[in-house]
Design a protein around this nucleic acid. Structure first.
Lengths: 152, 152
DNA sequence: CTGACTGCAAAGGGTTTGCAGTGCT
DNA sequence: AGCACTGCAAACCCTTTGCAGTCAG
């Protein structure tokens, strides 16, 4: 499943601009890798991104994928989700959003909620630290896993 | 930092009861390992738990710690937090609670909020899956990391 | 041109597994 | 006494690193 073309192109433009502004070289590998993440909507892990990129660029190496992903994270162009079963998963959606995580298969889906975006932060939080962002994680069983279980 | 004695003893009792009910043997290792997690309040990783247990039981092995932790997770006696820097972190607090995560050092602190416990789940969620629990994650910089940065 | 970048191969670090011996119930 | 459980060591898997050659600006 992919995102729409307009959003995709916006992401690519922003990516190029940030690289230029940061004095980082725009290589074929980097573009392909970011495109792969920017196109996706399902929080792929490094291996999945690697396989996707390799279809179009058979010589990329997995370590370049890693190096690029951490660089993109550093630049704030992508984010990571809490690791699932040892693999880090990446997300090109940097707008505020929330996650549904399937406790059976680990699949993670984005969702948006005005209400959740505006949660009031408890006062006690001031004692703990400086808040940067707030996210709601809803855990449950996704539709697909429900169906599988019903088959038994 | 430790939790209070009453809560600790309650946790141990429940642990013993669940093991017995599940027909799982109560070994010294298992008790020591669970005690180590049950005593903690700071979401230790497997290695940290291992070191703690080894003080009292110098012959335990790291793999027994892992085997026990996954077993406890399976039984629902503990939970895990999204992996931080490849290490899985464990939590004996199975009551509904929320987390503050330091985006600098990864430290995770529990906090409680009546309001967050009662969040209204969006209707669109019905299309996605069956909700089991809802958790709020607040990301920011913890007090200690703030101090460190001020020293530069 | 030239320093940043890449691919390769090998190392690293957390976690898992097979096996033979041990110890709960 | 029997079978689940443990410790050991080696394997596994994701990720990182050193190095020599390559390419974007």
């Amino acid at each position: 499943m992919h995102i729409n073309q307009k959003e995709f192109e916006d992401r690519i433009d922003k990516f190029k601009e940030i690289l230029k502004r940061s004095g980082i070289k725009l290589t074929h590998q980097r573009l392909e890798i970011y495109e792969e993440v920017a196109r996706s909507v399902d929080h792929p892990d490094a291996e999945t991104i690697f396989k996707g990129v390799r279809k179009r660029m058979p010589t990329v190496s997995l370590d370049t994928v890693y190096r690029t992903l951490w660089m993109l994270l550093d630049l704030g162009i992508i984010t990571t989700l809490g690791t699932n079963h040892r693999k880090t998963r990446f997300d090109a959606n940097v707008k505020g959003h929330h996650h549904f995580v399937c406790s059976n298969c680990g699949k993670t889906l984005d969702f948006y909620s005005r209400e959740f975006d505006q949660l009031k932060i408890p006062n006690t939080m001031k004692m703990i630290g400086d808040v940067q962002k707030t996210q709601v994680i809803i855990e449950g069983i996704c539709k697909q896993c429900q169906k599988k279980k019903n088959n038994y």
